[in-house]
Design a protein around this nucleic acid. Structure first.
Lengths: 192, 192
DNA sequence: ACCTGAACACCGTTCAAGT
DNA sequence: ACCTGAACACCGTTCAAGT
């Protein structure tokens, strides 16, 4: 029961994850949806309107799956496990990198509207991760959150490039061994 | 005393770092160099030939700057410092991400020839980083090398997206605190 | 060897015109 | 409101033709 607008967003998301902003063409979308390219412009006046809408919807779904907060009894390790698992399943869904990770690397090319949506996605990720280090000072928590987000996005790109999920798995294991190791001291304070 | 071929490579590298594979057009290169687009094809028959040549030259320069091996008295920390500094200066040169990082995220779109060059760059980085952990078992060394490479590439993308070198600096500091901390035990064995 | 103009099928965007 | 055909200036690529 999906309307034309939703079909366009679905198709555009698929094409952007396939090959970035420029690999997503109005004419190809139109053919896939079964209308003409001029009709796509009726729903999304310009390409940046379309791409920004795709990025926003992707970010909302991603953060919804992540969950607003962790359940009461959860440890930071539980949170990290959920976070890494989400990236892993995103990669296994087509062997493609994160939509916002792909767009990040095209930053200089993107219209401001799209760039802003992608930056908001990154900030939301860092905020969520930062909560896992809530026992530490803000500076340190933010730094670690940026570290983990960067590593996961870099690993997604490398896994996509080599079509090999082991890049992602290697990075995940290092996050567990390294960062979480340091974390255990605070964990007991936060979750007694 | 640069010939036309070199001028084309310089211009193409600038355009790819500006906005990725598709933001680099034969017509715009031709205008910048002062010839016609059909003439560019004489030097590089197809766009994938051009992009692969750009990626190869970039990788060679990057690895040359990194140096084949560290000087005799150097510690792994010295090596890591050199590695992080190289990425930092690459970002500060125009506020752009790593050329191969940009292309990684376009993996699905890229012609095989270009994809292979980018994958070779990633492998060379991992090999170089792996030597810093030569005291550990191969599995562990490779995993950490992939971790650091992923984190740096992800940080480059985030810094480029936000036009803020602090992403890169935060990640660098975490690499120092986390990974190198674990490393110190082996360091003394390797560099007595 | 190196360059060129002209052609081809693509692209985003616009717009007047249809229902 | 939703769609369409035609036009515009772009794109990579090809090719016969020039020096």
């Amino acid at each position: 029961m999906s309307d034309t607008r939703t079909l366009i967003l679905d198709t555009a998301e698929k094409f952007i994850r396939r090959g970035g902003y420029n690999d997503c063409s109005f004419r190809e979308i139109a053919t896939a949806v079964g209308i003409k390219s001029a009709s796509v412009h009726h729903h999304f006046p310009t390409k940046q309107d379309l791409a920004a809408a795709v990025a926003l919807r992707y970010a909302e779904n991603f953060l919804a799956t992540l969950g607003q907060a962790l359940p009461a009894g959860a440890t930071p390790q539980d949170g990290m496990a959920r976070y890494c698992a989400l990236f892993r399943s995103a990669f296994l869904d087509g062997g493609r990198a994160c939509l916002c990770g792909i767009l990040s690397n095209e930053a200089a090319l993107l219209p401001e509207q799209v760039r802003a949506e992608v930056a908001a996605f990154a900030e939301a990720n860092v905020a969520w991760l930062g909560n896992l280090f809530a026992g530490e000072d803000l500076e340190s928590a933010r730094r670690k959150a940026r570290f983990i987000y960067s590593a996961m996005q870099g690993a997604m790109a490398a896994s996509a490039l080599n079509q090999d999920v082991r890049w992602l798995d290697d990075v995940t294991e290092c996050v567990y061994r390294g960062v979480l190791w340091e974390m255990t001291a605070t964990v007991l304070v936060l979750f007694p």
